[in-house]
């Protein structure tokens, strides 16, 4: 694996060939199969993330977009080490945290925070707001903190809530307000990188805009970076500097937001953009571009993961899995069709 090229500043987050598999076969007895007169006990492995590489620079927003089951959420949770990675490397400011244990992760956790999707499940219903938002901060301190209430208030003010909210419980808030509390919790340790896993998809449209604006305001004020996971193209287009498109656990295309939307190169990206509903345009006739649905991540297809749905698939797609290769302009595509024969270099976004 080639090292990242002449990048002057180390990226804040770098992920190299990350792999995440889950054994879902259960106990030995659950696995027992009887077929054709033979007893076997096959393992069932979900290939959630398959060799994904990416990098997030300081102050940058990297959007990861893809449909359900594409591994984007698992990618996020593996990066914050909610799952132990089964392969590859995770580096924070050059420090390899892939196999850090609990104690060695503690200082790293201050740099790395997460915002969750479900505003109803992401806050402990039995905790008061003041305890929720200060928890990561208190955990990162070794000595008691004197001015706790002032700090909590300042945090709430940053996300547009006030002193009257300090002693309330989560059920007393609307979805949008809860998401603000979740954001305040992530802010409390002043992280460098916030991993946002579908932070607005559970919210009403009018509230989505409020939260997106808030996230941008906070980024401008504190200068941190986002790894922004979403299925919503209009959201990712608005918020991201660069985009990575995932399909079935693979990164199929990466590049600057503008380029991806103007000149998508991967057939899947093209299909995704074509399918996104556009305000005020009538539904066109069925362009039978993409057939069927996402295949199972347990039995990955041979060759290109997208080939069974791809209108342009040809013989080579079934034999050889395309690598993510740069095609110029910061864009990289994992497709045999956009492969200039002369650029064998390994691409990391």
């Amino acid at each position: 694996m080639s090292q990242p090229t002449h990048d002057p500043a180390k990226p804040l987050l770098e992920v190299r060939q990350l792999e995440q598999r889950f054994d879902v076969s259960g106990s030995f007895f659950d696995r027992l199969r009887f077929s054709g007169g033979r007893i076997s006990a096959p393992r069932r492995i979900v290939h959630a993330v398959n060799g994904v590489s990416l990098a997030v620079k300081r102050g940058e927003v990297l959007g990861i977009v893809g449909e359900s089951g594409c591994g984007k959420s698992t990618l996020a949770k593996t990066i914050v080490k909610l799952h132990e990675p089964t392969g590859g490397q995770i580096l924070i400011e050059g420090e390899d945290i892939t196999h850090h244990d609990f104690t060695r992760m503690r200082p790293v956790r201050k740099k790395l925070q997460m915002i969750f999707q479900d505003p109803y499940a992401s806050l402990n219903p039995r905790q008061k707001v003041r305890d929720i938002i200060m928890e990561p901060f208190l955990e990162s301190q070794s000595a008691p903190v004197p001015d706790l209430a002032e700090r909590a208030l300042a945090l709430l003010a940053k996300v547009g809530l006030g002193v009257e909210h300090l002693d309330r419980y989560p059920h007393q808030f609307s979805g949008g307000q809860r998401q603000r509390i979740g954001i305040a919790r992530a802010l409390s340790v002043q992280p460098d990188l916030i991993i946002a896993d579908e932070p607005v998809s559970a919210l009403d449209v009018s509230i989505q805009a409020q939260i997106l604006n808030l996230l941008m305001d906070l980024k401008d004020e504190f200068g941190f970076s986002y790894l922004f996971i979403t299925h919503d193209l209009s959201v990712v287009r608005y918020i991201s500097d660069r985009i990575g498109v995932m399909y079935l656990g693979f990164m199929v295309e990466t590049g600057p937001t503008r380029t991806i939307f103007a000149e998508p190169k991967h057939p899947y990206t093209q299909a995704l953009l074509a399918a996104a509903p556009q305000l005020g345009t009538k539904l066109g006739p069925a362009s039978e571009q993409v057939r069927g649905e996402v295949p199972s991540a347990i039995d990955l297809p041979r060759g290109c993961p997208f080939r069974q749905r791809c209108p342009l698939a040809f013989a080579r797609c079934a034999d050889e899995r395309p690598e993510l290769r740069p095609v110029g302009g910061g864009q990289a595509v994992a497709c045999h069709l956009s492969e200039p024969a002369t650029q064998p270099a390994f691409a990391a976004i």
Binding site: A209, M216, Y238, I239, F261
Partner: peptide, 28 residues
């Protein structure tokens, strides 16, 4: 009008600080 305007749209693809989405203030 507020609903339509709060859908993220293309104006975001400029260099420099991004313009904010127009939003409906407050909660339902």
């Amino acid at each position: 009008r507020g609903l339509i305007d709060s859908i993220p749209h293309e104006t975001a693809e400029t260099d420099g600080p991004k313009p904010r989405l127009s939003q409906i203030p407050g909660n339902v």
